[in-house]
Amino acid sequence: MLPEVQGWLRRRTSSAGDWNIRDLVAAKGETTVSVVLPARDERETVGEIVGVIRRELDALVDEVVVIDSCSSDDTALVAARAGAKVHAQGEILPDLEPLSGKGEALWKSLAVTSGDVLVFADADIRKFRSSLVFGLLGPLLGDPGVAYVKGCYDRPLHGAPNGGGRVTELVARPLINLHWPQLAGFVQPLAGEYAGRRSALERVPFLTGYGVELGLLIDLLDLAGLDAFAQVDLGSREHAPQSTEALGCMACQIMLAAWSRLERQGRITAGPSPSPRLAQFRRTETGYDVCTKDIHIDERPPMITIGTPLTGRAR
């Protein structure tokens, strides 16, 4: 690990227990905070998450916004009843060609939120705790030099305290250490819980698939430098695990995200682009079936280039 990264780890890593709500409310001043939950078919968990934030962080969080990504259940209704502002992903910036994926929901949230600081959290977290939000706000409200904060945590799976995070360990961490060693100090580079200043987030592009987290790390590093980052130990995080097949698609999108940034940085010579198709195999009674999936990712430009989108906020 680079010496500068070791120094950053000591200087910019804290834990949720280092921050308390009363002190953060005092430090908040006139700063406004939006919490964004991208959600698709998360009726079982989204209401509890919104409720915890509303009950325990009302003095700290100015709005809770759920971006409903074409749910087939009543995620939107559950979230609204719990106190969230709910926006259908497809109805935000309707003049733009619609794209799909988590990154699209996060990018569009910039157009319908008002906070100076945004906290992103996944909507499938079980046993949600308010520290998953206020822990991320600690470095941002406590230090104006911090622009972006990533959460890190244990990821229990099948009884193992850190059985989750397979794509991180097998794909993302090797790529980061090989190509962006300044980012090697992040314990959970793909964590879905992170926060940033609008002034930074609006100035970088967003990849639309599961590569959004890696893309943001790389692009914000270029924009603001390592010392503008911090990470906070949030304890543990539990959610429904995905199948190995689904993780394979996620891994491919992480690789495509890395390729796009290497190409943009001039570190890949001109040549054929990676295939956006992934062939996977399923056992059947007669052998194997081939299942081919489209795993391409798109990219949205920095929101600041869009002009004045659908929002009541002055830009």
Rank of each mutant, 00 (worst) to 15 (best):
Q6V: 11
L9H: 04
R11T: 11
T13W: 03
S14M: 05
W19D: 02
R22L: 11
V25F: 00
A26H: 08
G29A: 11
T31W: 03
T45D: 09
V46N: 05
V46I: 14
G47L: 06
V50L: 09
A59V: 01
D68I: 06
S69C: 14
C70N: 15
S72E: 15
D74H: 11
D74P: 03
L77C: 15
A79E: 05
A79P: 06
A82T: 04
G90F: 09
E91L: 15
E91T: 15
E91Y: 13
E97C: 15
E97I: 09
E104V: 11
A111N: 05
T113H: 00
T113R: 01
G115E: 00
L118I: 10
D122F: 09
S131K: 13
V133G: 05
G135H: 02
P144D: 15
V146S: 00
V149C: 03
C152D: 12
C152A: 10
P161I: 02
V167E: 03
V167D: 03
E169G: 06
V171M: 02
V171Y: 06
V171N: 04
L175G: 04
P181H: 02
F186T: 07
P189R: 00
E193Q: 07
R198W: 10
A200N: 04
A200V: 09
F206Y: 13
L214C: 04
L216H: 07
D219N: 13
D222N: 14
L226H: 06
A230H: 00
D233Q: 07
D233C: 04
G235L: 05
P241Q: 10
S243I: 11
S243E: 10
E245S: 09
A251I: 04
C252M: 12
W259G: 00
R261W: 02
P272Q: 09
P274K: 08
F281D: 10
G287R: 04
C291F: 11
H296I: 08
H296D: 14
I304K: 15
T308P: 10
L310D: 14
R313Q: 08
A314G: 06
